[in-house]
Computed example of a mutant assay.
Amino acid sequence: MAAFGTQFMPNMVHTTFAENAWSKPKLVSSDSVSLHPGAHVLHYASTCFEGLKAFKHDDGSVYVFRMDRNIARMQQSSSLLHLPNFPAELLEKMILSGLAEVLDDIPAPPSSMYIRPTHIGTEAAIGKAASPSNSSMLYVLFSQVGAYFSGGDVALRLLIEEDAMRCAAHMGMVKSGGNYASAMGPILRAKEQYQADQVLFCPQGDVQETGAANFILIDGNEIITKALDSSFLHGVTRDSILTIARDFGMDVQERTLSVEELLERAGKPGCEAALSGTAAVLAPVGTLIHEGKEHHIGNGEPGPTTLKLRKTLNEIQWGKREDRHGWLRKVNKT
């Protein structure tokens, strides 16, 4: 299969907002969109997106995972960016109708259909740097994807960054392209200087998130991650993993985690760490790089609890384990 996120279905579902109304969603070609060169999104970054997946079960049925949470988060992002509001039912219908068109193209696990709703400001007005766009475009792309890490389980290397944030603190809850762009420079430098896979942003010693995923520390029966606030993304996969951990009877702690505590715990036998996100699900972390020194987490290899949590989530998504929390929504043919 092609590189993750590069293989798109030929069509997408598309609607626009203008004159205080949304147009009827349509199935259109996904090879291009038409924008005025002065479109708000191109100058003032009025853009947000989501990432979720649909999975094919053994009987051929297809289910989309936690669509309601992703739609709610996209509504939140749109509101924080002052983009036109859209009803949840509109985006739900777009996702389900688009999936119904590609049911036969959804691959079997561990592959899936990645779904990328996107909302952008389209008003042609380069004088509105401090004003929202009055028009917008909402569309849903579909992409066949395989496993995010095609080479199997390799424990990641993270550079701890204490002097910078991933993005502006008040924008952390927004799933916007600008947040990923602001993290790109530190990540590229970390890769070049330390052969790190990602940067763990810990401003003033507060362990937050990496450039593209939430961070989770596992120490025996304890699972520790930053409590939700406006400074970082409220991951749907993060919430799913923590819910499964509670089902297992683990002590889930959503609280402040300092770099000092992280490094102290990391050296203990059996300690684990992982990154959670839609694409990678739960990726093991084996090494932390801090002030030029490398610190192995546990034995530096993927940990058993990390793999167990990921396997459980995958089995729910793939229909091989009971969906106790109502996370799956069946996709019907049109």
Rank of each mutant, 00 (worst) to 15 (best):
E294D: 14
E162Q: 09
I216Q: 11
S61N: 04
R66E: 03
L80I: 03
A18H: 08
G121A: 00
R116G: 02
G146N: 04
K175H: 07
V41W: 01
K191R: 10
A279D: 14
I95N: 05
P10V: 12
V236M: 03
M171F: 01
L158K: 11
D239W: 02
L35N: 04
T210W: 00
L275K: 15
D229T: 15
A100I: 05
W318K: 14
A100N: 08
W327A: 14
L188M: 09
G319F: 03
K93Y: 06
C48N: 15
R73P: 04
E209I: 04
L257I: 10
R329E: 09
G326V: 03
V41C: 12
N20S: 04
K333R: 10
G178I: 08
E264G: 00
E89L: 15
H295E: 13
E260Y: 12
D206R: 11
S97R: 12
I95R: 02
T16F: 10
E92I: 00
N11E: 12
S131K: 02
G235Y: 07
Q198E: 15
T334N: 11
G177C: 09
E161S: 01
L282I: 03
H296E: 09
V199K: 00
V236T: 08
T305P: 09
Q198W: 03
H234T: 08
T122N: 09
G326E: 01
I289G: 00
R116L: 03
Q75K: 11
L103S: 03
Q198L: 10
I297E: 08
A88M: 12
R310F: 04
A213E: 06
R265G: 11
S230G: 05
L328N: 14
M137Y: 05
N332T: 15
A213I: 06
Y139W: 14
I316V: 13
Q76Y: 04
L288Q: 10
V281Q: 11
T210D: 02
D197M: 08
M74W: 07
V62L: 03
I187A: 02
G249R: 01
G205P: 09
A168E: 12
R321G: 08
A39M: 05
G270P: 10
A274T: 15
T287I: 07
H40F: 02
S77K: 02
G235D: 10
T287C: 11
E301Y: 01
E291I: 01
G298R: 08
A168G: 03
Y139Q: 11
D104H: 10
P117V: 10
V285D: 09
T278G: 10
R329A: 07
Q76C: 03
W327I: 14
A129I: 14
A273V: 05
L91W: 00
Q198F: 09
K308I: 02
D58H: 08
Y194N: 15
A164K: 10
S77I: 02
S176C: 15
E209M: 03
G178F: 06
L83Y: 07
V174H: 06
G205K: 07
P203C: 14
E291D: 11
W22M: 13
V331E: 06
T118K: 05
E294G: 09
G178S: 11
H325Q: 01
Q75P: 08
K333G: 10
G172S: 07
T210G: 01
P117F: 08
